[in-house]
Design a binder for these strands. Structure first.
Length: 508
RNA sequence: GGUCCCUUCGUCUAGGGGUUAGGACGCAAGAUUUUCAUUCUUGAAACAGGGGUUCGAUUCCCCUAGGGACUGCCA
């Protein structure tokens, strides 16, 4: 039943960018493989020639690479079970479809999509549901109703056809799922799914998936819950092929829901709710751009971490984990059953956690390019100091600018509320006095500065708090920023005095 | 509509026959910060409803309700 070495696959179809639900599936497969010393396989399921998107496969590769989910076997990596792209395995599927035909598990069908659509529409109008199944197949256009001779004639004449699975009557299909336990279906409620289409000589997902999982010796199928209804079909396929003994174990992951809770997160939900649903920014062949986590300033470690905790938890109160740690403690048993809403706020918090873990030097290096873009040159050591002052209050590197801009640019405007409150009679004159005092300071350090300023303030009968605020206003333009004398120290004597005098002249 | 899955604070979740139902995000208050933030403390906030089983159910069973997925020659 079980093979010794764990082999799991992530099998996306290249129909567009991977979204974070898919990324989470990839992650869980990866973690499971690492945990068991197994193999993580990337298989490209490009069996829908009509939905193929040219840059999608590359996008998938780049996304996994950015997140550090190393693929062991795949299109790029190669491996003993290739090819790993389904469009390159056409001959294999045809052969297995034929096998099913020979064994009476499948049949040819000639109904056109248009005919079937019409039938569905008609049934709907009559408030019935159309299904291509045991109840309707004998009255439809297929080898079962047409007979061998006519079927062969049509095929020889080049008439397009599909091969459908002949779902048997009244079989109770029981499958055990690693996260849900036993699930049971009756085949009477299932229809005859298309397995193969002559039009592009490609199988559909169902056939390709079973054949490949078998041939690639996949031991565990870890995928999204949207696949749960296909389980009985898949089990029946394994049975039809005679592969039930080595059938992989299933684990259906809970869906990631939209923040609203209404429905599973989809590719369309991204930018409209103000958070990315894609790992990387994606530009469609048509030129449409969708934002990505990377470009939004998320660290890959944070994305991994937040995704890992969506639908899984370690059972402890720890929430911050490296991939390595996750790979050690991950178990399917601790995967939840119910869907998890994606919470953009918590996503930011995760990024914050990783941001504050970074050293000032690392953050300065990440921040430096943003400053260079603005044409600001700053000494790396000084930038490290500045960044260290404010990193606790930001979630993203990009937010560093709004917390530190006053270190690089003198204020051009002054917060009106603060002006009303702090810039009262006598304050401007006193500020000038303060500037003169600072100008004479030999020891330009936080402590000395603070000491000198407070002496001047008290000897002039001024209110310390008010003057501090007024000085802050003059230096940064409002009531924000880190410790005031730290700002003064970093700004330096000339700049500090310049800003005080500019404020006195500007604020009326 | 049919099939299947799910249901603990607003959200992510722990727990599991007897608990003050725990943590995190977010939110609020207080303390500290002579400013902003951080930090610390505190607070509000949940077992969907109804039946069983049981000495005792949030926990086990059933039903109802609600939510979700699937229902394609898509994956």
């Amino acid at each position: 039943m079980t093979r010794s070495k764990v082999r799991v696959r992530f099998a996306p179809s290249p129909t567009g960018p991977l979204h974070i639900g898919g990324v989470r599936t990839a992650l869980f497969n990866y973690l499971f493989a690492k945990k068991h010393g197994g193999t993580f396989i990337l298989r490209i399921e490009d069996t829908d020639s009509t939905r193929f998107v040219s840059n999608a496969e590359e996008y998938i590769n780049e996304s996994l690479a950015w997140l550090g989910l190393t693929v062991d076997e795949g299109v790029k990596e190669g491996g003993p079970f290739g090819p790993y792209k389904q469009s390159e395995r056409k001959a294999i599927y045809k052969q297995y479809a034929n096998l099913l035909l020979e064994r009476g598990w499948a049949y040819y069908a000639f109904d056109t999509p248009e005919q079937l659509d019409a039938l569905r529409a008609q049934c709907e109008a009559e408030k019935r549901t159309f299904a291509y199944d045991i109840s309707t197949r004998t009255s439809l256009c297929n080898s079962l109703s047409l007979g061998d001779e006519e079927t062969q004639r049509r095929i020889s004449a080049g008439e397009p056809y599909v091969i459908r699975f002949k779902m048997p009557e009244n079989v109770l299909v029981k499958a055990s799922d690693l996260v849900r336990g036993d699930v049971t279906f009756n085949t009477n409620t299932l229809d005859d799914k298309v397995l193969y289409k002559s039009a592009d000589e490609l199988p559909t997902y169902h056939l390709a998936n079973i054949v490949d999982d078998h041939l690639m010796e996949i031991t565990h199928v870890i995928r999204g819950e949207e696949w749960l209804p296909s389980v009985p079909l898949h089990v029946m396929l394994y049975r039809a092929f005679g592969w039930e003994e080595t059938m992989p174990q299933f684990a259906h992951l809970p869906l990631i829901l939209k923040p609203s809770g209404k429905g599973k997160l989809s590719k369309r939900d991204g930018d409209k709710d103000g958070f990315p649903v894609f790992p990387l920014e994606y530009t469609s062949p048509e030129g449409e751009v969708a934002s990505g986590y990377r470009e939004s300033g998320y660290f890959p470690e944070a994305v991994i971490n937040l995704l890992a905790l969506l639908g899984w938890n370690p059972g402890t109160e720890q929430e911050i984990f490296s991939v390595e740690q996750l790979a050690e403690i991950f178990t399917i048993e601790r995967v939840n059953k119910s869907g998890a809403r994606f919470d953009p706020e918590k996503a930011k918090w995760f990024n914050h956690q990783y941001l504050i873990q970074k050293s000032d030097a690392q953050l300065a290096a990440l921040f430096m390019p943003l400053l260079e873009q603005k044409g600001i040159a700053v000494d790396s050591q000084k930038l490290q100091t500045i960044v260290g002052l404010v990193k606790e209050r930001v979630n993203f590197v990009s937010e560093l600018w709004e917390q530190t801009h006053f270190f690089f640019e003198a204020p051009t405007a002054y917060d009106d509320k603060v002006v009303q409150k702090r810039w009262k009679d006598g304050v401007p004159a006193f500020m000038l006095q303060l500037a003169d005092l600072l100008n004479e300071q030999p020891d330009w350090t936080v402590e000395a500065l603070k000491h000198a300023a407070s002496e001047l303030i008290s000897s002039n009968g001024q209110n310390f708090g008010n003057i501090m605020n007024a000085l802050r206003l003059a230096l940064v333009g409002g009531s924000f920023g880190p410790d005031l004398f730290t700002i003064v120290e970093l700004l330096g004597k000339d700049e500090t005095i310049k800003r005080i005098r500019a404020a006195v002249e500007t604020i009326k």
